[in-house]
C-alpha cells in the first residue's frame, strides 16, 4: 500500500459517500444515471467474489463489502425509494453496447480462463466504461448539479491516482498488471473532458454547464 493507492481508495470512498448524501439529503436522484449505477453494482459484485475465497487483509475485505453494499443501496434508493425523482427520460444510453463487447473481451483477454478470473477481468473492463451512461446524461441535459460534479470528480480521480500507484509499484516492486493498467488509462481518459470543465467552472464557483 503506497500513498497513491490509499489516496485513490479514499477518493473512491468519498465519491460514493457524496452520491449517497446527495440522494439522501435532497430526497432526489435527479441527474444521476441509474444505468451507470447498475453497471457499477455489476462491477463490484463480479470483482469482489474473491471475498469468499481469499482473505487479503481486514482493510481489503471491509472496502469490498462497503463497495458492494453501497452500490446495492444506491440502486435501491434510485429504483425504489426515490423512484419518482429518477430522470429516466434522459438516461437512455444503451448498456448492451458496453456489456456485450466487455463480456467478449473478458472471455478473450484475461490472465487465466477460470470463472473467478474471467469475472474479475470482465469487471475491470466494465468499470473502465461504466461511467459513459452518466457522462452521456450530463451531455444530454447540458448541465449537472454541483454536488453531482463533485461526485464525478472524485470517481474519476480515483482511477487516475491508481495509475500513479501502478507507476510506483512498477518501479519499486517490479509489479504490474497490464489488464488493470490499460483499462485504468482508458477509464481516466474518458473523464478528461469532464475534468477540464470541472476545473475551469466548478472550482471557480460556477455551475457545470456545457458550452452550447
Amino acid at each position: 500500500m503506497n500513498v497513491f493507492r490509499l489516496a485513490g481508495d479514499l477518493s473512491h470512498l468519498l465519491a460514493i459517500i457524496i452520491l449517497l448524501l446527495k440522494i439522501w439529503k435532497t430526497r432526489s436522484c435527479a441527474g444521476i444515471s441509474g444505468r451507470s449505477q447498475i453497471l457499477f453494482a455489476l462491477v463490484y459484485t463480479t470483482r469482489y467474489l474473491d471475498l469468499f475465497t481469499n482473505f487479503i487483509s481486514l482493510y481489503n475485505s471491509v472496502m469490498k463489502v462497503f463497495f458492494i453494499s453501497t452500490s446495492c443501496a444506491t440502486i435501491y434508493l434510485m429504483y425504489v425509494k426515490f423512484k419518482a425523482t429518477y430522470d429516466h427520460n434522459h438516461d437512455t444510453f444503451r448498456i448492451g453496447f458496453l456489456l456485450i463487447p466487455v463480456t467478449i473481451l473478458g472471455l478473450l483477454i484475461n490472465h487465466d480462463f477460470t470463472p473467478l478470473e474471467v469475472l474479475w477481468t470482465f469487471s475491470i473492463y466494465l468499470e473502465s466504461v461504466a461511467i459513459l451512461p452518466q457522462l452521456f446524461m450530463v451531455s444530454k441535459t447540458g448541465d449537472a448539479e454541483t454536488i453531482t460534479s463533485h461526485y464525478l470528480f472524485c470517481l474519476g480521480l480515483y482511477r487516475a491516482l491508481y495509475i500513479f500507484n501502478w507507476i510506483y509499484r512498477y518501479y519499486f516492486e517490479g509489479f504490474y498488471d497490464l489488464i488493470a493498467i490499460v483499462a485504468g488509462v482508458v477509464q481516466t481518459v474518458l473523464y478528461c473532458d469532464f475534468f477540464y470543465l470541472y476545473v475551469t467552472r466548478v472550482i471557480k464557483g460556477k455551475a457545470l454547464k456545457l458550452p452550447a
Binding site: 474473491d50 481489503n60 463497495f67 487465466d112 474479475w120 500507484n165 498488471d177 488493470a180
Partner: peptide, 10 residues
C-alpha cells in the same frame, strides 16, 4: 497453476 490470481487492489 493457481486457481485464481491474487488481486490485492480494489
Amino acid at each position: 497453476n493457481r486457481y485464481t490470481i491474487l488481486h490485492d487492489e480494489l
